[in-house]
Write a protein that binds this DNA or RNA. Sequence first.
DNA 1: AAGTGGTCTAGACCACAGC
DNA 2: CTGTGGTCTAGACCACTTC
Lengths: 238, 238
Amino acid sequence: MKNKYLVIFEELEAAIYSGKYPANTTLPSENELAEQFETSRETIRKSLNILAQKGYIQKMKGKGSLVLDLQKLQFPISGLVSFKELAEKMGHTSTTFVESFSKQKASPRLAKEMQLNPDDLIWKILRVREINKEKIILDKDYIVEKYVPDLTVDICKNSIFDYIEHHLNLKISFARKEFTVEQPTEEDYQLLDMEGFQAIVVVKNYIYFDNATLFQYTESRHRPDKFRFVDFARRSEL
Amino acid sequence: MKNKYLVIFEELEAAIYSGKYPANTTLPSENELAEQFETSRETIRKSLNILAQKGYIQKMKGKGSLVLDLQKLQFPISGLVSFKELAEKMGHTSTTFVESFSKQKASPRLAKEMQLNPDDLIWKILRVREINKEKIILDKDYIVEKYVPDLTVDICKNSIFDYIEHHLNLKISFARKEFTVEQPTEEDYQLLDMEGFQAIVVVKNYIYFDNATLFQYTESRHRPDKFRFVDFARRSEL
DNA sequence: AAGTGGTCTAGACCACAGC
DNA sequence: CTGTGGTCTAGACCACTTC
């Protein structure tokens, strides 16, 4: 935590949460903040841009940086967030069941979808997520073995993301997500508490490392009544 | 279009599309680009950051800016994109039917959801979107009348966004989107070609101006088989 | 006219990759 | 060691808002 602009961003974020800068007031001007934090204006601007991008403030030319109402806007569950992080944020009791766990050669279909060499091995993991005693999510993970060689069932019971980021020290950089709604398969009916629902929300996730290599493909299948995705989007100017 | 960093972004974007910078090669270094475009490195960095945010490149410390494969990643339909823009991008023939169009006092429920004064008037617009001869999307728009006073049926047949941005010259700034899957209502069955589907994808959209005032609430109801949402997300580092 | 945020500059030092 | 991108600075000018 040494980057000045990140430190300042976090201080301002905390200050907004604490009520030091209430909603519908403006932050001190960029020049004032630069003085307060003993830094240059460009650095302050970097911090403010993160606040804006995350939906804390709205900058207005000639006026100032308006603090937005977090209550009103609620909180985006967007970005790359793992099941575990999410469940904890919501304060739910959750359990993960590892239904199957194996290492195998990629099927031709998968090899194509993940752009693998034909002899690359992949981990194939099937997990069921239970929230409040209901089996609601089916996660199918396909992870390139050569990048994440020492996977175990125990790791899968917790967070694979956590293991990759903190134990292997690999940086997850970006992901492409795709949302669709499909007919449930036999597998869905068998493994989840479908309660008569005849649709399933499928989130396909292609996850990339820092160096732009695809290392994981995840298909998350959610019971439709329990699925909710919130996004905070800024209008791109182009 | 006078901002240097935007001009440079667009040139680089075009160059990537044209094949001048093929996938899996690196762009010229920031110093080289600064020379080429006769500008400072910080300005170049602004342009490159937009490219990265949009998924064109991946920056790697010590190495360079890698051009990503657009074919592989496909294109995100994310952000705030109107139905019309979207249909045109996909190359589909599309029609919009304005089912109803009225100005009225906001219902208590809506007034609360949109944080309005009890005597504010709103436009209420019901539109059905037809793509390839199938009625697939039901759009319910609620627009605060005092911000957009002169709405007409003709405008609704085209793009309301377009009207607001280019004719009223108001700046749309950000939106909060929420995706859920629900049971279709009677209205859905009546107005859309539901073909036996028993679920509907509901996208709730709260749209804000530049000055952080909420001016429009839109509920877009999609037939589940025709719904697809793609997102390109960078891992936030916090 | 004074204050605000938006852009741009020319330089500096750092951490990291690769030879 | 050199070259890369990442951070930071101190200043400048501009467009916009407010008085």
